[in-house]
Amino acid sequence: MASIALQFLGVGNAGAVDLGESSAVILRDGRPMLLIDCGPQVPARFREKFGAPPPALFVTHTHLDHVGGFERLFVEQWFDRERRGRLPVFVPVSVLPLLHQRVADHPNALAEGDVNFWQAFQLVPVNRGFWLDGLWFDIFPVRHHAVGAAYALGLRGSFVYTGDTRPVPEMLSHYAADGETVFHDCALQGNPSHTGLDDLSREYPAALRERFVLYHFGNEAEADALRQAGYRVATRDAAIAVPAPMPQSADAAVRRTIS
C-alpha cells in the first residue's frame, strides 16, 4: 500500500504573506501526485521544491489566495508542448463557473490571441470525487461564504483537507470516521467564513480533535497560541505523514457518498 504525506507550500490566510498562501501537495511514496490550490506564489514554490510543474491540481474554491497563480501555471503549460493540455485540473462542478469567471473568461489569454485558456489544461469537472493513479478521492461541500462555493478533499482512512471553512461536524462525522488525519482551517478568532479556536471545542468531539492539524492562521504568534491550546499546527514546507488509505473499489467509492 502506498505511503501518503501532505507537504504544505504555505499555511497562512490571505493576509499572512510570510506564511505563504494555504496550499498542500499530496505525496505518494515521496513523490508529488496532487497539488491542492494554486495561489499567486504557489507555482514558483512548487517548482522550487520539486523541480517541475505539478502533475495534477485540485481547486477547493476561487478566492485569489487559492487560484491567483493560474496565469503563471497557464504560461508554463502552454509553452511546454509536451505538457500542453495534459495537466489534470479537478474542479467541483458548482465551483467551475466561478473559476472560469475568475481566471479564464478573457478573449486573449495570450497577447497574440488564438488560444483558449483551458486548452493548456485537462479540465476535469467533479461532483462526488475523482480517481487519480488508482486512488479514489472524495470531495464534499464545506461552509465558506456561499452554498456550493468551496469543497474539501478526502482520502478514506488517510486524511481530510477541509480547505477554507467554518466547522463542518456533520461532514467530518462521515468523511473522517475511519481514523483520518484532519487538516482543518483555524485561526485564533473565527468569522462568518472561517473557523476560530473556540469553534473547535464547541463543534467537535475530543477524540476527533486529537487528529486535527491546523492551518490558515494569520501569523506565527497565532500558530504558537494554537499549539499552546494543545493542537498540532502545520508549518511551511513540512511534510506530514498520514495513515495509508483503505483498500478501494468502484463500488466502495459509490457507497462512500452521502445520499
Results as ranks from 00 to 15, higher is better:
Val115Pro: 03
Ala120Lys: 00
Pro169Cys: 12
Val142Ile: 07
Gly154Asp: 03
Leu99Asp: 03
Pro97Gly: 05
Thr195Asp: 09
His194Asn: 14
Phe117Cys: 03
Ala146Thr: 10
Val103Glu: 00
Leu132Cys: 02
Ala111Ile: 06
Gly157Glu: 15
Asp114Ser: 05
Gly134Asn: 13
Gly196Met: 07
Ala187Leu: 10
Val115Ser: 03
Ala146Ile: 12
Thr195Leu: 08
Glu180Tyr: 12
Asn116Trp: 08
Leu123Arg: 02
Phe137Arg: 01
Leu123Trp: 02
Ala149Asp: 05
His194Ser: 14
Trp118Tyr: 14
Val124Ser: 04
Asp185Val: 13
Ala104Cys: 02
Ser173Lys: 14
His184Lys: 13
Arg166Asn: 11
Leu98Cys: 03
Ala177Arg: 15
Leu98Val: 02
Ala177Asn: 12
Ser158Ala: 14
Arg102Glu: 09
Pro192Gln: 08
Asp114Gln: 08
Trp118Met: 09
Asp114Cys: 02
Ala149Thr: 10
Leu155Trp: 08
Val115Gln: 06
Asn108Ile: 12
Glu180Gln: 12
Ala176Cys: 06
Ala187Tyr: 12
Pro125Gln: 02
Pro125Ile: 01
His184Met: 15
Glu112Leu: 14
Gln101Cys: 07
Asp185Phe: 13
Val160Asn: 05
Leu153Ile: 09
His100Cys: 02
Pro125His: 04
Glu112Asp: 10
Phe117Asp: 00
Gly196Asn: 12
Leu123Asp: 01
Leu123Ile: 01
Phe159Ser: 12
Ala104Phe: 03
Glu170Pro: 05
Gly113Cys: 01
Gln122Leu: 13
Val126Asp: 00
His144Gln: 04
His174Ala: 13
Arg156His: 11
Leu188Val: 15
Arg156Phe: 07
